[in-house]
């Protein structure tokens, strides 16, 4: 049997799918900054915390980096109601994304913290910088520069990762394809269009991040 493509029927859905793409961006953006917040505290705790804090954070990181995001999502999605906690699918998935990417970003950010060299700080100290000035002029700019590329890559990665939200009924790009594919049976066409949109979105995001990197942090990197 040969499949007859009917692109026309699928292309009608493009505006609807673009709306989904917007939600994808939205979800990945919020997810990224939630994860970044967790990652920041995780990295601070791991770098400056006591042995118990470090151990706890390590467990958290090792757990989430060695288990699938989908299964932790199921665990939260079906597990929390058993405790009487009811969250909307969107918030469940957001919680999962934050926890999951928080673990990875803890590691990424710690790498940035570790990269500040003692000699640089000594130089700043001998030049009479106060601690706040050291933070402002040496430490933060340095870390921002080092972290820009890996965090940018991580963000692109997260855009792709949010497709998982569709499984829980969130109507982002993939979720909307689920909806329409079931109604129109133009699955191949719709998934192809969605794949193309993901490619376009990530290329766009990469380009924007490259420009920001050059302009704000003077880093020349290829992003994803």
């Amino acid at each position: 049997m040969n499949y007859t493509f009917q692109w026309g029927e699928a292309f009608i859905e493009v505006p609807y799918l673009l709306g989904g793409a917007w939600i994808t961006l939205h979800l990945s953006f919020i997810g990224f900054w939630s994860g970044a917040t967790i990652g920041l505290f995780g990295a601070l705790g791991k770098t400056y915390g006591g042995p118990v804090t470090v151990k706890l954070i390590n467990w958290y990181v090792i757990f989430f980096t060695n288990t699938p995001g989908l299964v932790t999502a199921f665990f939260i999605f079906f597990g929390l109601p058993e405790f009487g906690i009811l969250l909307s699918p969107y918030h469940t998935i957001l919680l999962n994304i934050a926890l999951n990417s928080g673990a990875y970003m803890t590691e990424i950010m710690r790498g940035g913290f570790v990269s500040v060299h003692k000699t640089e700080l000594e130089a700043a100290e001998t030049m009479g910088f106060t601690l706040l000035q050291q933070l402002r002029y040496v430490i933060v700019p340095h870390i921002a520069k080092v972290l820009f590329a890996p965090l940018s890559n991580w963000y692109i990665w997260m855009i792709l990762g949010t497709a998982m939200a569709a499984i829980f009924g969130v109507e982002e790009l993939t979720g909307r394809v689920f909806n329409r594919a079931a109604e129109t049976f133009r699955s191949i066409e719709l998934y192809t269009i969605a794949a193309g949109m993901y490619v376009a979105i990530t290329i766009l995001a990469s380009s924007i991040l490259v420009v920001i990197g050059r302009w704000a942090f003077r880093v020349k990197v290829k992003v994803f």
């Binding site: 040969n2 499949y3 792709l160 497709a163 998982m164 594919a181 699955s187 998934y191 994803f224």
Partner: peptide, 24 residues
């Protein structure tokens, strides 16, 4: 290479499945 590094695995899975089925 540039394309398939930028497509979510979930989307690709469905695309492959429907393509395989669509072509019988």
């Amino acid at each position: 290479v540039e394309t398939f590094r930028r497509v979510p695995f979930l989307v690709l899975l469905f695309l492959v499945m429907f393509t395989v089925k669509g072509f019988g």
